[in-house]
Design a binder for these strands. Structure first.
Lengths: 345, 345
DNA sequence: AACCGGGGGTGAAACGATTTAACACCGGTG
DNA sequence: CACCGGTGTTAAATCGTTTCACCCCCGGTT
């Protein structure tokens, strides 16, 4: 029982042909004001709503874009999604949200669904680095933009943030503040963002001319709060503790921070903490968290713009790889110098 | 250039009629195994993907449901969305996510879009209590389920949590722990959840036979961390501070907690804090937060099930108002008794 | 008077699937 | 041999739009 009133009913009511109604809807300027008003009136009275399925069937241009993320629960993706939703809805597109939960199967199922929906394009953070899902989409002639996943493939648009630079920023900062035993808490190797951030961290050590042993990597199974807590417990149990912890994302950092604070460790005097992403909770933590900020909403907006542009003018479209620069936001969790100064005042 | 291979191409390739291909796709049991395999083969070779628009046009049954939330940035809605997404995708439905950002205009625009898409049904947390948007949807013959917004309207399904009971739980707990000057930090009156929670809090005071002055309400403009921080600053500036703060949601509570802790106030010895929602960050706060838990994913799942059920059997469907019971999760931020005991041990 | 051009409409043919009535074929039965 | 019921397949109608070729009317040019 879904709105049984069609364009034909409107036409009858307004005593015009269906073609004219369609014109009123899509190119109002070509129809005489008098008839236009009559048609509009009929639409109003009947409560007519365009059927997008029929529309799309004939015109071939869909009005939705797909968004496949690794984890809707992660504030990072939430903010990206918000950006996507904003520009999509400005362009009159709906956003179909899919959550792959880092599972290749779920990703595949969603991708199939999106293909059937003939979406305008797909923004995806792929689960696997082999991009199988992405290839399948492209094979079906769909525009794809990679989200937060750089690639060399010149046949693809991608929007990402320079993770290597971000890692370098963080560790350079820690070294400059005088920290000398840094542990990086990182996710599983599979996650390339983490790998990049670690490489950046190593770069920082090298560029500072320090012994590479000032930096150690501690891997945890997932990038969430619970993993951070467990990592912190491990660190506490050690005989010689690090004096700084750099976490691959803020969720980890919040977990670490909580456990350390509750164990009586002073942050940043005893141990500094730096996170990554600068989610809203970072600034509101017990000790405001230094973090590497990524322009999350901007990532979403840019990706949405790219995919819309690509499908508007598929022929002349040039694939772009947009790489945003991360930014270090220094807060109290790593400000050894300033704290010291304040204390001596 | 979106997958130009249609069911007709498959038919030609497999040397059958289009009807047979359709049968293979939808009722495989009626077609002979031999032909079935032949058709499947052709589908595979050609990389055929069903065109959902055409499908829906003829069959009339859409494969997407709409979800309109107040704020995708709020972890509460994120978790609800996850629940929706889960059951929807199990049922083979796509979820179209819309963010109204508490704006009536955005809500209206999204609702129109969903109507054009002829979605299966819409799950919505309405911006306005007058439910104008909801009525528009229903007028167009669409199933609507109200999310986290109770209603008396018997023509509607609704899934919500008993906010009044939640407020009562929180304050009863605080009173039982011996707190006697409670401030409830609440959002603007417009937000009914907050109103209900406050009424519940008042109930608790009355039922405990206390003077109603043990509870005071402090209103803030928004339910986010920043508002919580500002509220805490106000409280700190007072000559007589409350000994407990009950916040209308966890974001507020985290803001309050952070400011208090940084000002040297001991939680829960000097001031107890109770939040609402029990988002993941609540447990990971500097002092783990006592909070009223709502079954967020379950809310999403239930709502999705309802809307799918309603559209499957529209005739015999009986509208339901599901009201979940909230649950108090006691953590350290309000455990005066236990802390005292621990200290004397 | 014939012709032209163009604004304002009309009507029918797509679009790609589903659905249904009809049909061809089969061995078995009366 | 005619008839039957069942099975597998076909062809055509249908869904609601958009698009496109064409028509009509009317004033202005030759």
């Amino acid at each position: 029982m879904v709105s049984p009133v069609s364009i034909r009913d409107v036409a009858t009511r307004a005593k015009v042909s269906v073609g004219t109604v369609s014109n009123v809807l899509n190119r109002p300027e070509v129809v005489a004001p008098a008839t236009r008003d009559r048609v509009m009136g009929a639409i109003e009275e009947l409560g007519f709503v365009r059927n997008d399925a029929a529309r799309q069937l004939r015109s071939g241009t869909p009005r939705a874009i797909g968004l496949v993320v690794l984890d809707v629960g992660n504030p990072f993706f939430t903010d990206v999604a918000r950006g996507v939703e904003d520009t999509a809805s400005e362009a009159g597109h709906a956003v179909i949200l899919c959550n792959s939960d880092e599972s290749t199967q779920r990703e595949a199922r969603h991708v199939d669904l999106l293909a059937e929906q003939r979406v305008h394009g797909v923004l995806i953070t792929p689960v696997d680095a082999d991009l199988a899902a992405v290839r399948r989409l492209r094979d079906r002639g769909m525009s794809v933009v990679l989200l937060d996943h750089p690639t060399d493939d010149p046949g693809l648009c991608a929007v990402a943030v320079d993770d290597r630079a971000g890692g370098e920023l963080a560790v350079t900062h820690l070294l400059a503040e005088g920290y000398e035993r840094i542990v990086m808490v990182n996710g599983p190797t599979r996650i390339h963002q983490g790998r990049q951030r670690h490489e950046g961290a190593v770069d920082a050590v090298r560029k500072a001319g320090r012994d590479e042993r000032v930096l150690e990597e501690l891997k945890v199974p997932a990038l969430n709060v619970a993993s951070g807590q467990r990592a912190a417990e491990q660190l506490l149990a050690r005989s010689t503790r690090p004096d700084a912890v750099f976490c691959a994302n803020d969720l980890l950092a919040l977990g670490v921070l909580q456990v350390l604070v509750r164990a009586g460790v002073r942050v940043p005097e005893d141990v500094a903490i730096v996170g990554y992403d600068d989610i809203d909770f970072a600034a509101a933590a017990a000790v405001p968290l230094t973090s590497v900020r990524q322009p999350r909403q901007l990532i979403g907006r840019t990706a949405a713009e790219l995919v819309i542009a690509e499908t508007m003018t598929p022929s002349e479209h040039v694939h772009k790889h947009v790489l945003f620069a991360p930014e270090l936001v220094v807060r109290e969790s790593s400000r050894r110098v300033q704290r010291a100064r304040r204390r001596t005042r």
